[in-house]
Amino acid sequence: MQQYFGHPESPLFSVYHAPRGKHGGDGRAVLICPPIGQEYIRTHWCLRLVANQIARGGAHVLRLDYHGIGDSSGRVEHVDSVRVWQNNIREAIEHLKKISGAETVMLLGQRFGGTLAGEVAQKRPDVNSVVLWEPVLDGLSYLKQLRAMHAEMLDLWVCKMTTQNDDVSEEILGSLYSRVLLNEVEGLQLNVGDIPQPQLIVSCGCTDSALSHPEPSLQKVVLDDRESSWDDLRELESAWLRPQVSRKIVKLVREMFDRLERFDALKTESRSAKVGAGQ
């Protein structure tokens, strides 16, 4: 079901997948934070499938479009800070809690969406866990990779092409970003060890030390044995599909919910009661 929410003048677009099956959504909710730019388009179908499957396992699932991306309002070149997108995620969390009745949500972020989700999670007790799917850990190398592809793409034309770049904005693979935003992204680093929630990290062959966590029992890393193709220009026009690892994730998400339930971590009261935190 397609839904708009947020400020009426700058609404956010989302797709809601109602839960099916046994749990009937009792307290289980997942917010999907997609990648940005051309990766958003490539992964769209894949995330749709995953969302469907998770919903079928009994969770409420919401797929979000950030401001300036997809069907949400705004233009991407006007987005001047990652804070805008992080706030989109926060709003979506509230929205999802409202429509699902769940007290806490799981964030499933892919690529840069994982980076955003990881940042948001750190300050929200109502995020019960995170799934980071090939998250962008270092903003600078991410942009380097994208810029290299962009240049390579321009090289493929009959004569060398350039795209419009000025002081205010820069085009990368079909998206015009504000320089202010890109500067911020360049400085961005995600340290998963800072995320206090239980986490599932799907990584593509990389056993980066960046994935270490001070409390190892909170982290599970799944390796996707297919080669990463984010920097492969030939893949640019085709949908990014990973049926095997998708299924694995769906399965693990359900397992995470089961575990959260066992730890009584799907509700906020029980937790805030114990630590006296909260409002």
């Binding site: 947020g6 700058s10 805008v84 989109n88 926060r90 007790p125 206090p196 805030s272 630590v275």
Partner: peptide, 24 residues
Amino acid sequence: MNSSEPDAAIETADRQTRVEHQGV
């Protein structure tokens, strides 16, 4: 896409300190 200005999104209730949060 429409061209309206991206909204400076409503800041939601996430003002706790990280320490408390980790305790949770």
